[in-house]
Simulated scan of single mutants.
Amino acid sequence: MPLPNSLSYFVSRVESGSFPSFHVFPGGKIEYSDGLPEWLNLVDVGDNIQPNSLQLSSKKTEDLSILDFKICAIRESYEETGFLLASKIPNIHDSIKSQHQKEFINFVKDNDIKVLSSRLLYFCRWITPKQSFRRWDVQFFMLNISDSQEDSNLLVQIYPQLNPSSNTNMMHQVSELVCLDWRTPDKFYDAFCEGEIKTVTPQVYMLNQMKMFHRWQDLQNFAIYKDTVEGIKPFISYLNLKPYPAVKIYTLPGDHMYQTQFEDKIDLEQEGDFSKPIHRVIVKKFCKGKKKNVRIVENIVNIPGIKFPTVPLPNKL
């Protein structure tokens, strides 16, 4: 959730559950109530849209197939971190306790809140490989916050020093999280490579993308581009069983060797044949596996105004 001309956002370190001691984005499973049609009257669409909301089409209502994911993202973020993406913010310290005693939809109704679902951009979707012990189909959304007056009720939750008398600052759920950790994407990425933190492949990939942007406006334009032009294609990584235990190569959709074991030396010992489509993650481990060199190598992703440093000319982005 960045401020203008800078990039920063939080991840939550999970204490228990599916990813113990991992740094992960807030989130969780969809609940039945997240998909209720009533939400169409409780979100900022149509005549009640917020000034900073993103109207990316002429639709007057959210598509329920997407809205239920957005409601889940907003609900889980609030339950885990205390951050509420809504038109107004009730007293956080009082409301978190009461919210856990009722359905989120009733909490929203009782406090006369409009959930700002239109502020979420559909950013990425990852599905775990078939060989995984437990499989997940995860949707990722992005929220950008400005320092405008319209966003003041959102900023004050993140930066309580903006309003010391307010009691709406974020407060993480101690039963699930150890802490909230704020860093820029490059700092998180470096911490993962240095072995300081643990995270999961989708977040490593997204951190690598986001660290190339220095202004949140450019990152938001990229998210809008993906959301409206290309659409969201699910990523299912494919691990190549290289003969070197310290190196792992994951191919992703679009790579000419996707779901095929490497045999050619240009793929095994280098980064691939750049005359063909490349889309892969290369992980090299050092210092007894604690430090890593992680490279996202691709020549198929088009980010307006951004060129991947790993892709040599004449490959066009």
Rank of each mutant, 00 (worst) to 15 (best):
W126F: 15
N144E: 11
S132H: 13
P129M: 08
L143S: 05
N163G: 02
F133W: 14
S117W: 05
S152W: 05
W136Q: 15
S132Q: 13
E150C: 05
N167L: 02
R125K: 14
F133N: 15
T128I: 12
I145W: 00
V174R: 14
S175F: 00
D137S: 11
R134Q: 10
N169Q: 06
P164L: 02
Q139T: 00
M170H: 11
R134G: 07
P160A: 02
D151M: 08
D181V: 07
P164I: 03
Y159N: 09
L120G: 03
S165G: 00
R183G: 09
E150K: 04
Q157K: 04
P164D: 05
S152P: 07
F140Q: 10
P129K: 09
P129Y: 09
L121I: 13
S118L: 10
S148Q: 03
V178T: 14
F123R: 13
S132Y: 14
P129H: 12
R119F: 11
R119G: 00
F123N: 13
D151Y: 06
N167E: 03
L180T: 09
R183D: 01
P160Y: 05
C179F: 14
S132P: 01
C124M: 01
P160E: 01
F133C: 09
K130M: 05
R119N: 15
E150Y: 13
W182K: 03
S117L: 07
F140H: 06
C124H: 15
V174P: 15
M142H: 11
P160G: 01
M142T: 08
H172I: 01
R135L: 11
L162S: 01
I158M: 09
V156S: 12
D137W: 02
W136S: 15
L155Y: 01
I127G: 00
L180I: 11
L155T: 04
Y122P: 10
M171N: 04
